[in-house]
């Protein structure tokens, strides 16, 4: 098993931390992982993206030209990464902020209205966890349980009370994906 994922959007949307949580879940599940961010001033406000690879064998390149799965959260990211999804791969996007819809027919395209769902949960910070739930529904590379164990391990004790909310957000994201 090897899943090559790119997550892209505006800085501040939780792109890098979503990738980090996913990578950590891979670690909890004894898989090989790499997390390679775009870095620099664009991390605040501009576009940010992160490549996460999860594999059951050693990973060679952390830098990729094509991906199994892309999660895109704004128009620029959609324009940039839609052509880079491998045939048969998956493209997840949040329709809020998208004015040109993806057009490929050889990949699975999954709209996830995470913004709307985060508003329903009354917490904008659940946004990226909703998307992560959706991603893991489409591509179950790690179990939700590994994500929660990863959160428990990485979050400081004083934030542990937020774990149930995160679990709720993950489940919400899974529900938003039509089987």
């Amino acid at each position: 098993m090897k899943e090559e994922i790119v997550i892209a959007g505006f800085g501040g949307q939780g792109v890098l931390s979503m990738g980090k949580i996913l990578a950590y879940a891979g670690l909890m599940d004894d898989l090989e992982v790499t997390w390679m961010p775009s870095y620099g001033p664009e991390q605040r406000g501009g576009t940010a993206n992160v490549t996460v690879i999860i594999s059951d064998s050693p990973i060679s390149s952390p830098v990729l030209d094509t991906f199994d799965t892309a999660v895109v959260l704004n128009q620029q990211s959609l324009d940039k990464f839609e052509p880079k999804v491998k045939p048969g791969g998956t493209l997840i996007y949040d329709p809020s902020g998208i004015h040109r819809l993806p057009g490929r027919t050889d990949i699975r395209i999954v709209p996830v209205d995470a913004m709307e769902a985060a508003i329903e949960l009354k917490n904008s910070k659940t946004y990226n966890m909703i998307l992560l739930g959706a991603l893991l529904k489409c591509r179950p590379v790690v179990p939700i349980d590994a994500v929660l164990r990863g959160l428990k391990k990485t979050l400081p004790e004083r934030h542990h009370h937020l774990i149930p909310l995160n679990e709720q957000a993950l489940n919400k994201g899974m529900e938003l994906v039509n089987a």
Partner: peptide, 10 residues
Amino acid sequence: DGVVGQMMEK
């Protein structure tokens, strides 16, 4: 290089 410095892995 910046890749090895900035990337996370096990």
